[in-house]
């Protein structure tokens, strides 16, 4: 599992992914961790199959008991099916996740971890010295869905928005936006069901100061490419499976 430090000024953002040893038929995922002082927030920690490489990679940046908080943008298995294992590794942690999915997420096995149900309008928490916002992204693609925004680091962890399906050795950052479009077009058109939800999210996100937009699959958008993505996404027709 490859680890890349995205931000390191007082607190850290680390991206984990591009795991060359993952089983071939499992979709590659990006996991993120934010470390501030003696606390850490693990975002969309991944499926059961990536648990061991993920934990191994994390132990370079944080101690096990330093991971006090987990976040799940939604309920998909590639996001959080490892929950039952984290539950045994981090019995005192809190999982921040959509209120809508609590009864579903508990099917992954959660006997120890506390559940912080994020309300529809979103919420915010403090991790060490950093205030983190949970930004609503409902129906993008799950009916209860949030992204994580760190105003200090100017990073938006954008879940499945901005995701692209690419080979395991793809670069970490978008280097040419136009060339990147074909890699993410079908994903957004098919997985995102609602133009209204999409435009509502774009309106909300345009108000944020974003340097990095970090999706759960594919490459990270940096600087001007964030605005390019929002413009492109705004013009994109989604929910195309309904003819």
């Amino acid at each position: 599992m490859k680890a890349t430090i995205l931000y390191e000024q007082g607190h850290q953002w680390i991206m984990y992914g591009r795991d060359v040893e993952k089983p071939e038929k499992i979709i590659d995922t990006n996991q993120y961790m934010m470390v501030s002082g003696n606390r850490a927030l693990l975002m969309d920690p991944g499926g059961i199959e990536v648990f061991a490489p993920m934990l191994g990679a994390i132990l370079h940046h944080a101690k096990v008991d330093q991971i006090t908080d987990l976040f799940a943008s939604h309920q998909d298995p590639d996001i959080i099916s490892s929950l039952g294992l984290w539950d045994q590794a981090l019995p005192h942690a809190t999982l921040h996740a959509p209120w809508l999915w609590e009864g579903f997420l508990r099917h992954f096995g959660m006997e120890n971890i506390q559940y912080d149900a994020i309300p529809d309008e979103g919420s915010s928490i403090s991790i060490g010295s950093v205030d983190i916002q949970f930004i609503p992204a409902h129906y993008l693609h799950a009916s209860g869905n949030y992204h994580v925004y760190d105003p200090k680091a100017k990073i938006l962890m954008s879940g499945d928005v901005g995701a692209a399906l690419e080979p395991i050795d793809a670069p970490l950052f978008v280097d040419s936006f136009d060339e990147h479009i074909p890699k993410m077009k079908m994903f957004h058109q098919r997985w995102m069901p609602s133009n209204r939800a999409k435009n509502d999210w774009i309106k909300r996100v345009r108000q944020l100061d974003i340097e990095y937009m970090a999706p759960q699959h594919g490459r990270i958008f940096k600087g001007d490419d964030v605005k390019r993505f929002l413009d492109w996404f705004e013009g994109l027709e989604v929910g195309v499976a309904i003819k």
Binding site: F51, A52, G56, D65, L85
Partner: peptide
């Protein structure tokens, strides 16, 4: 079964990531 699964995965981390700075923090878990 869940405990055995967790133990085996934890053990795999302990065996394959001996070089990691905070590997010893796995012990209590």
């Amino acid at each position: 079964q869940r405990s055995v699964d967790a133990y085996l995965r934890f053990n795999s981390v302990r065996t394959h990531h001996t070089d990691k700075r905070y590997i010893k923090s796995m012990t209590p878990a």
